[in-house]
Design a binder for these strands. Structure first.
Length: 324
DNA sequence: AATTGACGCAACCGCAATCGG
DNA sequence: GCCGATTGCGGTTGCGTCAAT
């Protein structure tokens, strides 16, 4: 029982492709096309699984592929689309000529996630971490905070700790706002006396986060990311080439193309589906027959960018959900 | 100089969707 | 409409490279 294997595993080579194998596959496909992947390796004289051949072709050998580094414009497009579409790499890659879903996925996982985190933005929700902290705080009643905060933060605690303790970037700005020490490696000397106890210097970072939570509960406006997020004093130590103007992103209007994509306010759930009020930059828009760009998704729904580049979600159940 | 760990990329795996007889 | 075969997709792993210790 079980799934039928895609090929005879025993007589199939695996691992890195050799230039000779690449040449055989490319030559065969140039002559015969890519009609039946199961038969291609046999006919091309390759001891490879058809699936492996297909991957090698689509991700590496195809002549229309770009192999160089991603440009900043491409990165911005990826982030923009990811904030709307989540991990739908094939849809995102379709908007980037010459890039494959694997390329986009790898680039996201190795570079862009870290860049966003380095800027204090959660790469899953595309919200500033401070905003997430505020949202968590707003869901907790004050007596619970010290006990629940750490658990609630678990989803991104490691990321924050990495940033705060290893790369030493980012959050001093927020601590300054709380009247705390100006660097993340200094213990809060004027921290709260009630809701958070400073138990152990080893875990002081967690304490600071908890302190932020307790302050957020007392004074929710302090953590409003729109009002308070400013990158003026926000060094991004290992991303100097990444000239992303986050301040302009949060101030509507001109600036980086990213500024039209990321979440603001408390309603955004980007990454979880195509349900949110979104705009994307015009440079990402192609045209369908009615002047809009269609992106057909796996579940059959269709995302359309109209002439104003406004996203619509068209599903079989719900024919037209204007997303604006 | 040797070791270790982080990083980036290619490739694999398994499930879901689609195709076609 | 059914069902097996094929293809597409996203998550994960393996491995080579390089910098830090």
């Amino acid at each position: 029982m079980g799934r039928i294997p895609c090929c005879e595993k025993d007589n199939v080579k695996r691992g890195q492709w050799t230039p000779e194998e690449d040449h055989k596959l490319s030559s065969y496909i140039a002559q015969h096309g890519t009609r039946n992947w199961r038969l291609i390796p046999k006919h091309a004289g390759l001891q490879r699984c058809g699936k492996s051949c297909r991957l090698r072709w689509t991700n590496y050998l195809r002549p229309d592929l770009k192999h160089g580094q991603f440009s900043e414009a491409e990165e911005q497009t990826i982030v923009t689309l990811h904030s709307v579409l989540g991990n739908r790499w094939s849809v995102i890659a379709a908007q980037l000529p010459g890039r494959t879903d694997n390329d986009v996925k790898n680039h996201w996982n190795t570079k862009l996630k870290k860049k966003l985190s380095g800027m204090g933005i959660d790469p899953v929700t595309h919200k500033p971490f401070s905003h997430l902290i505020s949202e968590i705080a707003n869901t907790l009643s004050p007596p619970q905070v010290p006990h629940l905060a750490e658990a609630a933060l678990g989803c991104f605690k490691d990321e924050m700790l990495h940033l705060l303790t290893k790369k030493r970037i980012g959050f001093q700005f927020q601590f300054q706002q709380f009247g705390m020490a100006s660097t993340a490696t200094t213990a809060p000397n004027n921290g709260p006396s009630t809701s958070v106890k400073h138990e152990d210097n080893k875990d002081e970072t967690i304490e600071k986060i908890k302190y932020g939570l307790s302050r957020a509960i007392k004074e929710p406006d302090m953590l409003n990311p729109i009002k308070n997020w400013d990158t003026t004093n926000f060094p991004v130590s290992d991303n100097r080439e990444f000239n992303y103007n986050f301040a302009s992103l949060l101030n509507e209007g001109e600036g980086s193309p990213w500024n039209q994509s990321l979440c603001s306010g408390s309603t955004c759930t980007a990454g979880g589906g195509l349900q949110q009020h979104k705009r994307i930059s015009n440079e990402n828009c192609g045209e369908n027959s009615e002047g809009g760009k269609e992106i057909v998704t796996r579940n059959g729904s269709t995302t359309v960018f109209n002439s104003d580049c406004v996203l619509w979600d068209i599903s079989s159940d719900d024919l037209m959900n204007p997303m604006v």
